[in-house]
Simulated assay, not measured.
Amino acid sequence: MLPFATAAGLTDTEFRHIAKLLHEHTGIRLGPGKETLVTARLDKRVRQLGLSGYAEYVDLIDDRHDEAELHQMINLLTTNETFFFREPRHFEFLAQVLVPARPVGRAFRMWSAASSTGEEAYTAAMVLAERMPPPSWEIVGSDISSRVVEVAGRALYPIEAAGKIPPELLRKYCLRGREEYEGLFTIGRELRGRVEFHCLNLMGDVRKLGRFDVIFLRNVMIYFDVDTKRDLVSRLQNMLHPDGHLIIGSSESLNSISGGLRMVEPSIYRLAGAHV
């Protein structure tokens, strides 16, 4: 077979099988109508492997025949759009409400729980660095995709991505690339030192990360069914300090699944009452 031959089209059976595997391993549910997304994300990979089509690809990843390829499929299907200072109201809340109310005697901890290529975590780092000295805060970023976690750790971005960063913060916390890094910029070493990234499946045991004052989980649960959302929210609230906050995407809601969380304003929830 030619490695760059056109892959045979995705059938309904193959789509359902790929969707089933993705749901089992990540909690993400791909319903009817997502066939185009699957082919857009996977077609190049199928051709790179020299396969004739998706039937062979399903055989490759089915029944754990190829764990590495299954992980590669998850990488390709779970990458979400992100950019610096996306949904700015959340970062205003972080600066204007959470930082002034921060606890005394311990570091303020934030978890970017679907950090993708790192823009959310580094945006929060700029916000916190403007208001607190570095030893008093830390950020953890995590994503199920090892590929985007590697990008986040490198902290190298196209210069066009800097357009959303306020000019004063761009000058203070970012560095323009030169020579082989022409056309790129990076986050300064001081901020990078306060942010750590992990490849992590939210459906697994995440307790090792510890507890947090705020968790950002934005634009992720739109892909989950109600039972998966309820289970995830229950586990996340157990990782919040008393009066900690969970921030979700502006288009999302925790209606009927909020558990011990109470809405402060749309998309922003606080853990109510004492928490042990």
Rank of each mutant, 00 (worst) to 15 (best):
V99E: 02
A19S: 11
K34G: 05
V97Y: 12
P100E: 00
L2N: 15
A162I: 00
L156G: 12
K34P: 07
S256R: 10
T186E: 13
H65D: 11
L42S: 11
R218E: 05
F4T: 07
E35Y: 00
T39Q: 12
R16G: 12
V214W: 10
Y269L: 03
A162G: 00
L70Y: 00
T26W: 01
I222K: 11
R29F: 12
R89S: 15
D43T: 13
L246H: 00
D63V: 08
P166T: 00
L240N: 02
E92D: 15
L42I: 06
L261D: 03
G9Y: 08
R235I: 05
L94C: 14
G153A: 14
F4K: 05
F91T: 14
L30W: 07
L94W: 01
S52V: 14
D213M: 06
K164A: 11
R16W: 01
E56M: 03
G188W: 08
Q96P: 04
H90K: 03
H241F: 10
L156P: 07
V148R: 04
I215D: 02
G9M: 11
K34E: 05
G249W: 00
L200H: 12
A155M: 01
T26H: 01
S145I: 01
I159Q: 13
G50Q: 09
T11C: 07
E265Q: 15
L202N: 02
Y157F: 01
V46S: 08
R270W: 01
M221T: 11
T117L: 03
T36L: 14
D205F: 04
A129K: 01
S256G: 07
L232A: 03
E81Y: 12
R218P: 00
F85W: 00
L21W: 13
V214S: 05
G33K: 05
T36K: 14
I28K: 09
N201G: 05
S112V: 08
R171V: 07
F197L: 03
T79S: 10
I28P: 10
R189T: 14
E168L: 15
G244E: 02
E56F: 02
N255F: 15
D43Q: 09
A129P: 09
I139D: 07
Y57V: 06
D63A: 13
M1I: 10
Q237L: 06
I257W: 04
T79P: 10
L76T: 04
M1T: 13
Y54T: 01
F224Q: 09
T36P: 09
R109I: 01
V233W: 07
E160K: 00
P135G: 10
A274E: 13
T123Q: 01
H65I: 12
P134C: 07
D12I: 13
G105P: 10
I165L: 03
